[in-house]
Amino acid sequence: MVAGVRPDLEQVFREAYPRVVAVAARVLGSRGEAEDVAQEVFLTFGRSSVPAGEAAGWLSVAAAHTALNHLRSGRRRASREEAAVSPDAVAPDVADAVVTLEERRRVRAALATLPRKQAVALVLRHSGLSYAEVAAALDLSPGSVGTTVRRAESALRKELNRHASSD
C-alpha cells in the first residue's frame, strides 16, 4: 500500500464502491462518468482521516457532491462519446412512470440548479439510503429529510411540467 494512505482503504473500497458509483450515476446518468467520480472520491477518502464508522455516509455525500460539481461545471463526457441513442427512446418503465431521455436530461440540468443540500438529499434517497442514513450524512433531523426530498422532487417536477407545457 502506498504510504500516507489509510490502511482500511481497500476494505472500504470493496464494500462501498458499488454504492458510490450508483450515487454518482444518479446524478450523471452515465456509468463511465460515475466510475470516474468514484475514483476521485476514493482518492480523497484514502488520504482522509474520516472515522471508519462514518465512511459509508461520507463517501455517499462526497459522491453526490463531486458528481454535482461535474454536472455544474459542464465536465461532461464529450458528445462524441455519448452512446448513440434515439431521442425517442424511453427509460425502463418503472411503476408507470415513463420518462423520455430528453426529460431525463432536463431533470439533470435542473438538479444542478437546486440548493445543494436538497440535491444531495434527493440523490442519496434515490440511491437507496434510508432516512436515518441521509439524516446522519447531511446532519439533518430524520424528520426534515422527507421535507427536503419532497421540495427537491416538487421543484424537478415543476421543471418537467414547464418544458412540457412549452413544447
Partner: peptide
Amino acid sequence: DALLVGAALLADDPSLAD
C-alpha cells in the same frame, strides 16, 4: 412526483438500474 423523478434519475446504463 417521486416516481417521475426516480425514473428520471435512473442511470442510462441498465446494469446500474434499480
